[in-house]
């Protein structure tokens, strides 16, 4: 039980990932498949953010302890923490995974847009977004294209 408590984020990551993949593969509806894909990609975002977190760490902004901004930021920190380490000793969470995942989210949005655009064209061309019906239409077309034996 305590393992789940300490790895809670990762448990959620795995659940999201599996749910996303399940939707992608089990659903026949192109829109639902895109939703599953988006869910799957979101799990990656949570994964990156989770391992970038440093216990007790704060946002990665350099505090100028004497400046007004530094004072304001220090006021938001846990007082016990500041009392123990001082403002200069504050630990930061790793900002790099956040930046990386920001890029990955942008890439994910672009993919989602292209995917939905293709789904729109599928709907225009086949009149449906259900994989089964698309396959059936394609099969009929293929049989008609074949000459009689």
């Amino acid at each position: 039980m305590s393992w789940i408590a300490t790895h809670f984020n990762y448990v959620v990551v795995v659940i999201l990932m599996m749910a996303g993949l399940f939707i992608v593969f089990s659903s026949g509806n192109l829109i639902k498949r895109m939703i599953g894909l988006a869910l799957f990609q979101s799990s990656t975002a949570l994964f990156y953010i989770s391992f970038g977190k440093v216990s007790g760490g704060t946002a990665a902004i350099t505090l100028d302890a004497q400046g007004a901004e530094g004072q304001a930021l220090a006021a938001q920190l846990d007082p016990a923490y500041v009392a123990q380490f001082g403002v200069e000793g504050v630990v930061y969470s790793n900002p790099l995974p956040h930046v990386l995942i920001l890029t990955a989210i942008v890439v994910g949005v672009a993919t989602l847009a292209v995917g939905l655009a293709i789904a729109v064209r599928v709907r225009e061309s086949y009149g449906t977004v259900e994989s089964d019906e698309i396959d059936a239409v394609s099969r009929v077309a293929a049989e008609q294209a074949e000459p009689a034996p």
Binding site: L21, V24, L30, R33, L37, F40, Q41, G108, T111, V114, G115, I118, A119, R121, V122, S125, Y126, S131, I134, D135, S138, A141
Partner: peptide
């Protein structure tokens, strides 16, 4: 059939 093929490619490629 290029459309479903492209969609399938997108799903697999993104995964």
């Amino acid at each position: 059939r290029a459309l479903p093929a492209a969609f399938n490619y997108l799903i697999m490629g993104t995964i």
